[in-house]
Design a protein around this nucleic acid. Structure first.
Lengths: 123, 123
DNA sequence: CCTTATGTTCAACGTTTATTGAACTATCGA
DNA sequence: TCGATAGTTCAATAAACGTTGAACATAAGG
């Protein structure tokens, strides 16, 4: 029972796992939303994603995103704050994350992503 | 029974399907090998990939790569010549294919990819 | 014609996957 | 202490996936 969620080290991040993670529409939407948030506070918690799916299903996808090295979780009280592992990903796979996010943004409607402006609105 | 292998139009190419296709190690190796070949004749046939897996398994992966729009097949005699749909992919997802291939190249050993020099050697 | 070479298709299999709801844990606030 | 809130974990399900070998189709070469 991994109490502390395990994140791979930078060097342990694997390309196929990252691509597989990004290939799921829900996970891609999560990553996209986190990428939008980078400009601001850079962190979001689980509740910010309820529009995408139910709690337990989100927890499943969060775990995948953590395990493959795409995001990081910080525990604070009853909240888990997530953020992209931008530096590690850019170091391992230069240009990849940006290309994916830009491509996703272009297809935002088709992928049913939230428009960028709706993403923040934190309380 | 699709006699002519169906390729999606440029606009039909979907980001999640492309990422999913690239997330399989064998398919990534195929794409990588095709990318190397771009500099030369730009086409390879099935037999050029026997190092990766058996015939029928390769045919399965080729079908996936075609269906998601990553590659194109041209029939010539008993051969099927394949090539990357570079233009379509670059138009739809600028920088993505290059980022993936460059990332794969950096991890060539880990991903068990053929060294670039061994790729050509056509007869 | 018959044989060989190239690939595809099919059926079977075991594995992994995404999704659901219920149960659980842990923290915060009254 | 009690209840509400935030997330995780677990069990169950159906669907999709990758791999295999055998059968099939098609074209080239004798």
């Amino acid at each position: 029972m991994s109490r502390t969620p395990l994140h791979p080290t930078r060097e342990q991040i694997e390309l196929p796992m990252v691509l597989d993670c990004l290939s799921d529409p829900i996970r891609l939407a999560i990553v996209y939303q986190l990428a939008q948030q980078e400009r601001v506070s850079s962190e979001l918690c689980c509740g910010d994603f309820y529009a995408l799916s139910g709690k337990s299903n989100l927890a499943y996808h969060f775990a995948k995103l953590r395990e493959c090295g795409l995001m990081q979780t910080r525990v604070a009280g009853t909240n888990r704050f997530m953020r992209l592992r931008r530096e590690d990903l850019d170091a391992r796979f230069p240009g990849l994350l940006d290309a994916v996010i830009k491509s996703a943004a272009r297809d935002a409607e088709r992928l049913q992503l939230l428009p960028a402006c709706d993403v923040v609105e934190a309380g």
